[in-house]
Design a protein around this nucleic acid. Structure first.
Lengths: 195, 195
DNA sequence: CCAGTTCATTGACTTAAGTCACAAAATGAA
DNA sequence: TTCATTTTGTGACTTAAGTCAATGAACTGG
């Protein structure tokens, strides 16, 4: 079983020994090579995904053919498409491994069963949702109230590790700007520092 | 007790008669006149708010002094600041009644007790969070992939009622554009229709 | 270790949206 | 109704960011 998942759950709720024995049954380990897709636009999403190691991104492609990255999921994060997972509708997302990765996969059916049987899991899930909602709210407000340079600096502070691991054009996409703009922003910052 | 809250909960979970007797104890009715603030930046937020009637907005004011509206809460919606409510930190939000309104208020303490005692409420809350997270994700992706005109048209389709009830400069703020831009977008749409 | 791709940078130009200033409507309180 | 305030609309101009195109750097897989 994934020690990481157990560790993460413990950050939110109390876990007894028999509790994480229960978890074993529900999750399946899956390895992904860099470039593998977990699913693509149009797929039905019947699994929730927890990242054990590696790096996964979720993105959409809009009508103009432009990619927009919604999330970079590092170890300890959940990823996938919550909307499709709960509604059963086909997804608009692509989920791709940016590095060789290992994930835990749980089917919708198992998920519902687990929520039903394990109060601690329900509680964990709820707290995760609460924090997730707050985080994405903040991200939305940030897109409204900051310019390109501030967005980049903010990212550098909150997820410095991501900058080391993903190409800059993906960072730009995540921040909602063109790669050229990001390039210029970075350039400006270097100039200002050396002054 | 609020019939609306009960009705809303029933949209998500099964409710027995004794269940909504329980609810009575936890919520307090509060009336707000147009222009009243429920709380402001810097306040500690110890209550969650359910809108029974009227219209409430939540917004922040950024460093440049510009307002950014995060939400218009119509009857049946929850509002406030989830982040501060769960963490206890002071808020950056302003919550203001745009019309004379009636809300239900529940303290953090009661909230936790209710979640603990009433499994149906936990379930309702969880499902609400799930849908809320998906909705705000979609809003974020929309800000990345659409121009001013598309954003306005999208809003017209999803919340036509709001347009009747709030000044346009607030709509503009909600959509993340200046009031002048919104004015021009609307003007263009009229011209195109009459052609 | 080389060839071919992928990625980043830069300059020139375009464009969508913002800003400022003012005027015209609309609203609403006395 | 009237007067003051709030809200909306418009023109002129600015600006941040996008687009296009070309070049160079850096990986990477055989």
């Amino acid at each position: 079983m994934s020690d990481l998942l157990i560790q993460k759950i413990k950050e939110y709720v109390e876990l007894k020994d028999e509790d994480f024995l229960l978890l074993e049954k529900y999750f399946q380990k899956k390895t992904m090579a860099k470039g593998d897709f977990l699913f693509r636009e149009g797929d039905a999403v019947h699994h929730a995904i927890f990242v054990n190691s590696g790096l996964i991104r979720t993105f959409i492609i809009d009508e103009q053919g432009t990619e927009h990255i919604l999330q970079f999921a590092l170890p300890g994060w959940w990823t996938g498409d919550l909307g499709s997972f709960i509604s059963g509708a086909t997804t608009k997302f692509f989920v791709e491994a940016l590095e060789n990765s290992e994930v835990l996969s749980i089917s919708k059916q198992s998920w519902d069963e687990l929520l039903d049987k394990a109060p601690f899991y329900l509680d964990y899930h709820r707290k995760l949702l609460e924090r997730g909602l707050v985080a994405i709210q903040n991200r939305l407000l940030e897109t409204f109230s900051t310019d390109a340079s501030q967005k980049y600096q903010q990212l550098m502070e909150t997820f410095p590790d991501i900058l080391q691991r993903v190409p800059l054009y993906m960072i730009a996409s995540y921040l909602g700007m063109s790669r050229e703009t990001l390039s210029r922003v970075r350039n400006q910052m270097v100039k200002k520092k050396t002054n």
